[in-house]
């Protein structure tokens, strides 16, 4: 198991390294560089005339005149060694400050969504497989198709509309007005929980639709396995039998796609955040892109992707633990 873990860990580090290269390249794509945009932003409309030399000075100050390779190492080095993501120009402060505790808000949303996804999709998928061909199964299939076809922002709007009608106006966002800028407290956390469920439902929707089908398919396969018939022939009570044999194995594909679900959720986050007025990384990412604040955007993209890679790693470990065949390499 130790060897298995170390192998996966090394794989994770390599992937993260490559991801950071890719993110860096994306940060470099927009025309002009940080100095251009900084000067433009700071001085446009102020009447001050910015010369090419001024911009050049800023560039030199920040080391932007260095070759790309050096700048990459500078950037990634800062992140890894000092947790320094560089400067955010739109907010005139460091990227780390801008991102700040939004990381935890985002993590909160992510975990609420994942929890909801699995709490719903696993039992429902199992049920659909056991009752294969019934009206319920048919209805769930239709739901799954719809769940994957409905654009998430539309779902967010519809949910928001109904939430507003049934639960009052103050349901969007992550906090009520009085807590938005308050320091963290139990009351604030509770307030957040009360707002969180809507985002979680919207974000979990398509993941649930997808995972129900996965669980249903594996469960149907597993139900037909000889080992299940053999256990039944030994007189194992039906419910215990379902849980211990097929259901236990039907969870494996879900575990192996945790990273994929996180990916899907992060992919939807910036869009859903616009509609729901969430103040977390997704929304900040969109804002940064629109402002071409590439240091902030790059930092967020990197964080989100690292989170996905890390979840992949965790899911590999979990799978190795759940399925003894994997870690033995059978």
């Amino acid at each position: 198991m130790l060897r298995f873990t170390l192998e996966r860990f090394a794989g994770m580090v390599v992937t993260m390294l490559l991801v950071s290269v890719m993110v860096f390249l994306i940060m470099e794509i927009p025309p002009g560089d940080y100095a251009d945009r900084y000067a433009f932003r700071k001085y446009s409309g102020t009447g001050v005339n910015v010369t090419e030399a001024d911009i050049e000075a800023i560039r030199r100050d920040l080391g932007l005149d260095q070759p790309m390779l050096l700048r990459y190492f500078d950037w990634i080095g800062g992140i890894v060694l000092r947790g320094d993501f560089g400067q955010a120009f739109a907010f005139e402060t460091s990227v780390a400050k801008v991102i700040g505790d939004k990381v935890w808000l985002t993590a909160g949303i992510l975990f609420a969504t994942l929890l909801l996804t699995y709490l719903v999709s696993i039992p429902v998928g199992i049920y659909a497989a056991v009752r294969r061909g019934s009206a319920v199964d048919y209805g769930l299939t239709v739901f799954s198709y719809l769940g994957l076809a409905l654009p998430n922002f539309l779902l967010a709007l519809v949910m928001l509309y109904f939430a507003n009608r049934w639960f009052g106006a103050d349901i969007g966002g992550l906090f009520s007005d009085q807590y938005r800028d308050a320091p963290w407290s139990l009351a604030k956390a509770w307030d957040m929980a009360k707002h969180l469920w809507l985002s979680a439902v919207v974000l979990a929707w398509s993941a649930v639709a997808y995972q129900i089908q996965t669980v249903r398919a594996t469960m149907s396969d597993e139900l037909n396995k000889l080992s299940v018939t053999a256990a039944r022939a030994r007189g194992v009570p039906e419910l215990k039998l379902l849980v211990k044999y097929p259901a236990r194995l039907a969870i494996n594909p879900v575990v192996s796609t945790i990273g994929f679900d996180v990916n899907r959720i992060f992919s939807e986050l910036p869009i859903v955040a616009v509609v729901l007025g969430l103040t977390e990384l997704g929304e900040l990412l969109l804002k940064a892109y629109l402002d071409l604040d590439m240091n902030v955007a790059g930092a967020i993209l990197l964080l989100l992707t690292f989170a996905i890679v890390f979840m992949n790693f965790l899911s590999d470990l979990l799978l190795g633990w759940l399925d003894p065949r994997i870690k033995l390499g059978v």
């Binding site: 890719m22 990916n263 899907r264 869009i271 629109l290 993209l301 989100l304």
Partner: peptide
């Protein structure tokens, strides 16, 4: 593998923003 782990919409957004 690398392209598959990056969340796709934020990736598209990055390119589109440029």
């Amino acid at each position: 593998e690398v392209i598959r782990v990056v969340p796709i919409i934020p990736l598209y957004m990055g390119l589109a923003a440029a």
